[in-house]
Simulated assay, not measured.
Amino acid sequence: MRILVTNDDGINAPGLAVMRQIAAETGSDVWVVAPETDQSGLSHSLTMNDPLRLRKIERQVYALRGTPTDCVIMGVREVMPEIPDLILSGVNSGQNISDDVTYSGTIAAAMEGTMLRIPSIALSQAYDWTSGNPIPWDVASTHACGLIQRILDKGIKKGILININFPNCAANAVSGIELTRQGALTHGLFLDKRDDGRRNPYYWLTHRRQSQDVIAGTDLDALQRNFISVTPLKMDLTADEALDYYSYLAD
């Protein structure tokens, strides 16, 4: 099996090393095209006004000065001699769940693979970024390969990508696997205003999540109970349930 590996945390991210290990256990022909630098939060963006610079790191491993979406296109259209059988994106440092999937470059890479009609899976490892504790990469490295194989054995439907999130716990403390819906989070992005040395204002985006009710059956609910969350996402964003509501526009 030919596998293209990418991420949004960059070519030197520890999660990419974990992803390469998982890919090597899944297929025999693994290629890597990952961003030269951290591209987190860039979603499904393309580099349109700058050239894409490709740098070979080692055999079948490349760094690209571009976005995760660029990396998938480069891997499929230029780097790999044949179209991959599978695209694996991650392992992201931090969960990609609920509304946050719309920001995620990890998810976007899997979206691009899905648009290219290639089975694609995004993988993310949850952790508590406020605690200072290390990211429990062993959860993903222990459980990902078997889960991916089960998904591939059944097949991924056209227009669907798979979003997998591993809980923030020890590998042997995982409660199981749950098929989940995409949940919802309170909007947690705010602006931290500061002044530079000349008293000119500048801003940092900051995260300040508010407490909220967690809906059963969602990705967030599964992670909070130490389950691995598996969420099928679709490329068709049409709100089918709203078509009748807006039917008056066609009168």
Results as ranks from 00 to 15, higher is better:
62 Y>S: 04
46 L>E: 11
151 I>K: 03
82 E>I: 04
99 D>I: 10
185 L>C: 04
211 S>T: 14
91 V>A: 06
218 T>M: 01
184 A>Q: 11
35 P>L: 04
187 H>G: 10
104 S>D: 09
4 L>Q: 10
113 G>Q: 06
103 Y>K: 11
6 T>I: 10
236 D>P: 03
176 G>I: 00
112 E>D: 04
17 A>E: 14
125 Q>P: 12
13 A>T: 04
75 G>K: 08
51 P>A: 01
200 N>H: 12
2 R>A: 10
167 P>T: 00
75 G>W: 04
163 N>C: 14
198 R>N: 14
141 S>Q: 11
180 T>I: 07
196 D>Y: 13
173 A>K: 02
156 I>F: 06
25 E>Y: 07
142 T>Q: 08
116 L>C: 06
245 Y>L: 14
211 S>C: 07
192 D>A: 11
189 L>C: 05
169 C>A: 09
57 I>S: 04
37 T>I: 13
66 G>P: 01
235 M>N: 07
113 G>K: 05
134 P>V: 05
161 L>A: 10
195 D>E: 13
92 N>G: 13
185 L>F: 15
225 R>D: 00
167 P>H: 02
210 Q>L: 13
41 G>E: 11
195 D>R: 12
238 T>F: 07
99 D>F: 08
242 A>S: 14
190 F>T: 12
59 R>A: 13
226 N>H: 13
77 R>D: 15
221 D>M: 00
195 D>C: 06
228 I>F: 04
205 L>G: 08
92 N>Q: 15
203 Y>V: 13
98 S>G: 08
213 D>I: 07
248 Y>R: 12
94 G>E: 04
219 D>T: 08
183 G>N: 02
97 I>L: 05
75 G>Y: 05
141 S>G: 06
16 L>P: 01
36 E>T: 11
62 Y>P: 02
